[in-house]
Design a protein around this nucleic acid. Sequence first.
DNA 1: TGAATATATGTAGTCAACTACGTAATTTTA
DNA 2: TAAAATTACGTAGTTGACTACATATATTCA
Lengths: 168, 168
Amino acid sequence: MPKSSIIDGLGLLAISTRLQRLSEQLRKDGQQIYRSYGIDFEPKWFPVVYSLHVKKTLSVVEIAAEIGYTHPSTISLLKELEREKIISSRKDSSDERKRLIQLTEKGNSLVLEMQPVWDTMTRAIAALTSTPNNLLSAITEVESKLGEKSFLQRAEEIKSGLSPFTGQ
Amino acid sequence: MPKSSIIDGLGLLAISTRLQRLSEQLRKDGQQIYRSYGIDFEPKWFPVVYSLHVKKTLSVVEIAAEIGYTHPSTISLLKELEREKIISSRKDSSDERKRLIQLTEKGNSLVLEMQPVWDTMTRAIAALTSTPNNLLSAITEVESKLGEKSFLQRAEEIKSGLSPFTGQ
DNA sequence: TGAATATATGTAGTCAACTACGTAATTTTA
DNA sequence: TAAAATTACGTAGTTGACTACATATATTCA
């Protein structure tokens, strides 16, 4: 991944670019780690599969909410997973609009098979992020601040002379 | 199978997704902040324009290196900026392979116009990221660790029984 | 000096998310 | 109870990055 001088120095304004680059880097390596364990699995499938592993049966919109994606994005993930026979779906008999999704037998055994991979990844990421400022905590903290007040709202307040910290 | 190992892993395993989502959120709000100042500017143009503001004249590959993108991505950004008449380009007379890029007069005055926007954004992001774990520092720290040893390499070492921290 | 290599730019196609819009089924309400 | 609103799902097209490949020019070295 190419390193850049100016942008690194400019920190705050290029933070979105840096977040994206870091995300992409981790996703790509994740892909290769699954491969190195001989497992045919994409990192982007993880949130769906994990949700179904825990909750057993969910509708499309419920999965979208669980994983924090829009439902069209979720639908395309589900299509891939159905093609891979990792999940299966059927209509909800009490509400015909709903499609109920579950892990297949293959999906369930895949989850078991992936335990050591997930363990390895978790350790590697833990090592990577065990720095003075913990990345995962930092993300959680910023997400929580954004939940209170968006970047846009904060900018509007600063523009109109309010403190970005207190909003007064 | 202990459920806790999966749950503990969840946060870390979904880190790439969360980074991407955060990036997208900041980028979108950034777009609206420029708009609220009545300025026709895309956040994704910032690294290119800022680099040219500082360095005055750069080739395509030099810009790509500065902003940390691949050169095809850079070319498509440059096309947009040229269409917007924010930059102009000419062949390098001493090396005909090179295309030298500069800000136009419009580009230069745009940079001046954007100073207050950049100032506002910088403050808003500073407020957002002033949490116990500083996001920008965390990113820098993780990038630096990745520079030493990639996520993939760390995973390989853990797989073969080495410590993820020391590699021994 | 000319063949091989390296550098600079460009094009085509892919990927993984998105938004916008549309249809069908269900629920609410005037 | 029919019209309106909501919910659930789906499709089409966009975006912004990428990789792989192609071409032109410059440089190196046997």
